[in-house]
Nucleic acid binder design. Structure first.
Lengths: 259, 259
DNA sequence: ATCCGTATTACTATTATAGTAATTTGATTT
DNA sequence: AAATCAAATTACTATAATAGTAATACGGAT
């Protein structure tokens, strides 16, 4: 686990609380106090205080018998509010939905923050294999979205980020060193979009284009279409959809406000 | 040293942070530091620390020129996660959507927490007047949902809550004292649902039924249909939809898990 | 009843935060 | 270009809040 050191003007208690709230998702909706303490690497009392705060505020609830914790009504209200408050979302969704519905594609939209890509919208095809992914990912070297962002970043920023990539081999064709990554990124720049040729998960292929800032021209995020080798080879997927991809990415670049 | 016996297990910093995050909604997506400090009744430095924490974590972002703050990508990701993590939601939505689509009704679903009703889902009619409401409301005495919950609460709990109602007169027919409230609640019990006959906002009418716990029979929340006197008088609204209301409330009672 | 794992409370040392005040920034006017 | 002003940011400390240890209560299982 990576520990970043922030300055004086950083409320650590708040960060811990938010991290706890983030533990609750569809795949793990119930947590015991002990589990949370382990995951947070914190003592039980501190976790108890944080959790109790959320319980009193209505963001978490305890099951009646088992003391397992799960999300409460205030969490649901906050969820709705955050989605509606992020006005951009309302512009993104219809554009993505239209393409999804027309071509039955699996589509992801991510925004770049710090050293991570944060997924802000996705649509999936029905009746095809799919994979579970986290909402926030630091894996830039082995994903289409990651590479499409890296390719268009200013040189210093790219160098920084290239340095912290793990280059762990995930699948047969994962890029496992900086030189190969730079070579691939050069191709991405020429092409205008990135490919993921089973570099992350066996059978998973993707094409991804950056969403660029209108003001600076640098990437704010990425748009990716994913599919599997069971449906079609990457070359065919690329031929069919690269045009649609780039066009949608351009449209998104227009509606996502800068910074 | 002075030591408190109770209330120690509550992280105040976390509460403040969450309150700040809650300020951002569709009607007020941008806040300056000073505005937040005023609203929170806190000094600038403390607000700066809390806000800066959210900015570093990606939940808030600062505009490039004006330093106005708005929600960041992590907030959007958290929003999606909270909605999906609250598994109940997926059961509620289709039931509500079906009725909404069939009858073109304005529908609200709330859960009861502490002394408030927290709206967890809503659908609105198109092309009719509507009103802005907060996601969390403590006004139980002058809303249909509030009265429908109060009516079915155990006597002590009702007494507690009746005591803290403000009884501020909101509109011509607002209930303004405890005795009238108790009389109204008796009718609600007999009827099985509550009416709001322009008690909150001029022209606004509603019928509302409680969502009851399968285990205890006490209210977990409420379902309300709202309309306006411009469309039809309350009696007609009631005649047309009370049946649908009670049926949907029963269905919701079945899918919302206890506690 | 007793055991065991987990949750909750009691109790401080240490740390983080609140608050005041000083400084910087950046936009607007002169 | 300098002056002005409002707002954001940083410096600094007293005080309040939290982390952590240990003790206790609780709830199921045996």
């Amino acid at each position: 686990m990576m520990t970043k050191v922030y300055g004086d003007y950083f409320a650590k208690t708040l960060e811990k609380g938010i991290r706890i709230l983030n533990l609750f998702d569809e795949n793990h909706p119930n947590w015991s106090l002990t589990e949370i303490a382990e995951r947070m690497e914190l003592n039980l009392t501190s976790v108890y205080r944080l959790v109790n705060t959320f319980v009193e505020l209505g963001y978490l609830k305890k099951g009646p018998k088992s003391k397992l914790l799960h999300l409460g009504p205030m969490a649901l209200a906050l969820g709705h509010q955050l989605l509606r408050g992020f006005d951009t979302d309302r512009l993104i969704e219809p554009l993505v939905d239209e393409i999804h519905d027309r071509h039955n594609l699996s589509i992801d939209v991510c925004l770049f923050h710090s050293r991570s890509l944060v997924r802000i919208y996705k649509r999936e095809t029905v009746n095809t294999l799919t994979y579970r992914q986290d909402a926030v990912s630091e894996l830039l070297y082995c994903t289409g979205s990651g590479k499409s962002v890296l390719a268009f970043l200013p040189a210093e920023r790219l160098a920084e980020l290239a340095k912290v990539q793990s280059f762990v081999s995930r699948a047969a064709r994962t890029i496992t060193n900086v030189d190969d990554l730079y070579a691939d990124l050069e191709q991405v720049r020429q092409r205008g979009y990135a490919l993921n040729n089973e570099e992350y998960i066996k059978g998973l292929i993707a094409i991804a284009a950056p969403i660029l800032s209108r003001a600076t021209g640098f990437p704010l995020g990425a748009l990716s279409f994913t599919s599997t080798t069971l449906e079609q080879p990457l070359a065919e997927f690329e031929d069919n959809y690269a045009g649609v991809l780039c066009q949608l990415a351009r449209k998104l670049s227009e509606v996502i406000p800068d910074l």
